[in-house]
Design a binder for these strands. Structure first.
Lengths: 131, 131
DNA sequence: CGGGATCCGGATGGATACTG
DNA sequence: CAGTATCCATCCGGATCCCG
């Protein structure tokens, strides 16, 4: 993992793809990023997340939190009060990761329209009869 | 899409997550990145890809290429020779995207071990009996 | 050679009812 | 409040056969 992945020609080897794919799979879940965003600013409670994420089910929120916690991207803190209280916070590692993801957003904003257009054109061509 | 997604406090809104997720889903396929890497250097033939990607099936290669083409990330060129010949090349847009993905690799290399460790610790704790 | 069509299994994600 | 358990729909990816 500490070896270089590019040679003098700038060519990239297969390991590169694996590394990228690995981190990608970690956050490519439908809700992972939403959770990361909301926990990056400090501790947030379960219900807070459930209400703010709009559309997420209890189950998916739990699963997402579990996976992120497992990977060390968020920390879970339980307050043993009478009505149980749990807060989640993104770790520094996660915040750093998120910064990189923001770089992707820049790309999305620059080329998003082009992608949409390309897609529309492609679909139109595919739907076009032989005529 | 051209609006800013962060306010003065640095807080991020929901649109941000959608934008990231959008581009993420585009390349999070199991083979997309592998194809992108190989086509970034110039035109590559279908069979070339099939042999170099090792483990990919004809179907998945086709599907991956189709999706990337649809999104305008690769261009497809058909040479109407007797045995049909087709070449694929990553577009500039795709190369730019790939550059951002490389940034994620840096993160993966820095924190990969930590993630693996965290995961192992988590699993060990989960497997531990009540004793 | 470069695909398309079909079938299939596993993983992913959603809805909801139940619980400490 | 913060989950867990269960059931179900969908999608992704693989294998295989067929076609121009």
């Amino acid at each position: 993992m500490s070896q270089r992945h590019t040679d003098v020609t700038g060519h990239v080897d297969e390991g590169q793809a694996c590394a990228i794919l690995d981190v990608l799979n970690r956050v490519s879940g439908k809700w992972s990023i939403a959770v990361l965003i909301r926990t990056a600013g400090g501790p947030v409670r379960f219900t807070e997340l459930e209400r703010s994420i709009e559309g997420i089910s209890r189950r998916m929120l739990t699963l997402t939190l579990r996976n992120l916690e497992r990977d060390g991207l968020i920390t879970r803190t339980v307050y043993p009060t009478v009505p149980a209280k749990v807060k989640y916070t993104a770790t520094d590692m996660a915040r750093e990761l998120y910064d990189h993801l923001v770089g992707l957003t820049a790309w999305a904003e620059r080329h998003g329209p082009a992608v949409v257009a390309s897609r529309a054109a492609y679909d139109r061509a595919a739907a076009a009869p032989a005529t």
